[in-house]
Computed example of a mutant assay.
Amino acid sequence: MGIEFNVFKGSKSGEIIEGKGYRDPKSTEVIVKISHCGVCGSDEHFRHTEQGLGHEGIGIISEVGSSVHDLSEFRVGDRVGMAYFHKFCGYCKHCITGHQNKCRNSTCFGSADQDQGCFGTAVAWDISALFKIPDGISSEDAGPLMCGGATVWSPLYDQGLLPGDRIGVIGIGGLGHLAIQFASKMGMEVVVFSSTESKKQEALDFGASEFHATSGVESLGDIEKVDALLITTNVNPDLSLFLPVLAAGAKVFPLTISTEVLPFTPLALIGGFISVIGSGLAPTASVQAMLSFAAKNGVKPKIEKFPMTKAGVTEAMQKLRDGKMRYRGVLVVPN
Rank of each mutant, 00 (worst) to 15 (best):
D78C: 12
C108I: 11
T233H: 09
H45G: 06
T214Y: 02
W153E: 13
F88R: 15
S154W: 13
S198T: 10
G164S: 06
G168I: 00
A295L: 13
M325L: 09
V333D: 02
Q114R: 15
G171C: 14
V7R: 10
A122R: 02
V7E: 10
P25H: 11
K132Q: 03
G110K: 10
K9D: 12
N105G: 14
S209N: 13
S219M: 08
E197K: 09
I17G: 10
G90M: 11
V333C: 05
M317C: 01
E260C: 01
S292H: 03
Y84S: 14
T214G: 05
S286R: 14
G54C: 07
L267W: 09
A142I: 15
E140R: 12
G298H: 11
G272K: 02
E4F: 10
Y157R: 00
K302V: 06
I223R: 06
A129G: 08
L255Q: 10
I60T: 15
F131S: 04
G57N: 13
K9G: 11
E189C: 00
L241E: 14
F131W: 05
T284G: 10
I137S: 09
L243H: 11
S67T: 09
V333Y: 02
V39D: 05
A208L: 04
A268K: 06
L320H: 03
S106G: 00
I303C: 13
E44K: 06
K26Y: 00
Y91N: 01
L220S: 06
G149E: 02
L204A: 08
D126W: 09
P254Y: 09
V191I: 15
Y22D: 03
E304Q: 11
G298W: 14
Y91R: 07
P144D: 08
A268V: 01
I3R: 12
T97L: 13
G21V: 09
V68S: 06
S35E: 08
F273P: 01
I127Y: 01
G77A: 12
E189D: 12
V330L: 12
V76L: 11
S258A: 11
C118S: 02
I180A: 12
Y84K: 13
A203Q: 03
A179C: 13
F46H: 12
V252P: 02
Y157M: 01
L156N: 00
A112S: 01
S128E: 03
S35C: 10
M308R: 05
K200W: 07
T121I: 00
G143S: 08
K319S: 01
H86D: 10
V217F: 00
F242C: 05
G221F: 08
A247M: 03
I60G: 07
M290Y: 10
V313K: 11
V123N: 11
S198D: 08
V39G: 07
T284H: 12
P134H: 09
E218N: 08
E202W: 00
Q116L: 08
V276I: 15
I31Y: 00
A295C: 11
V192S: 06
H177S: 04
C108H: 13
V252L: 00
S275A: 04
T97H: 13
T49S: 13
I60E: 09
T121Y: 06
A179T: 15
R326K: 15
L239S: 02
L130G: 03
N236H: 14
N236D: 14
F109I: 01
